[in-house]
Amino acid sequence: MADTPTPIVLLPESEVARIVADLAARIAPVTDDETVAAVLLTGGLWFAADLTRALSRLGRNVRFDALWLASYGDEKESRGRIDVYAPFQRPVAGKTVLILDDVFDTGLSLAEAVRIAKEGGAARVLTCVFARKPWPLPRAPEPDFVGWDAPNRFLVGYGLDHAGALRGLPDICALD
């Protein structure tokens, strides 16, 4: 990735941690230990790990699962379709499912995850994203919980990537 521009820090690690703690405080009252926190892989993994630990510090020890969905591949823009690489690992029927994702832009991945959870018999589906980007068209469903309204820039770090790289940055950065 020799031509990759230098990442510009938009949200430092300390602010990321503050946002995650705030989200946990908002989510804890509407969940319980039977809630299934389902991360959308791969980008949401960093956020989901931090959020579930923050919930645990507040006395909520949610169950954990994952859906592996992809709409970007290695591109900077969505392909406009969702590929499902792996479904839930355990049944979600009758449970509250809290879907966790890193960023909400087109809304395609979140909508597909909600559909899968409902089709699996979830009693209630809540959605939470770390970042929400502006979008010119209405999206459905809007997330129930949003940590940060991000600018309309290409983001990397904290799970967000550029062709699989830069996910491990502790800050959220723009790659302009």
Rank of each mutant, 00 (worst) to 15 (best):
T96L: 01
T96D: 09
T96M: 04
V97E: 01
V97A: 02
V97M: 05
I99P: 02
I99F: 00
D101N: 10
D101W: 07
D101P: 11
D102C: 11
D102P: 10
D102F: 08
V103G: 05
F104R: 00
F104T: 05
F104A: 09
D105A: 05
T106G: 10
T106D: 04
G107P: 05
S109Y: 07
S109F: 10
L110W: 01
L110A: 01
A111Y: 03
A111P: 05
A111Q: 10
E112Q: 15
E112N: 11
E112G: 08
A113N: 06
A113D: 03
V114K: 06
V114I: 13
V114D: 01
R115H: 11
R115A: 13
R115V: 06
I116R: 15
A117R: 02
A117Q: 03
A117E: 02
A117Y: 00
K118D: 11
E119Y: 10
G121N: 04
G121D: 11
G121K: 09
A122M: 14
A122V: 14
A122D: 03
A122S: 04
V125T: 10
L126F: 15
T127Q: 00
T127M: 06
T127L: 04
V129E: 14
V129L: 10
V129T: 11
V129N: 03
V129D: 01
V129C: 12
F130V: 14
A131Q: 13
A131C: 10
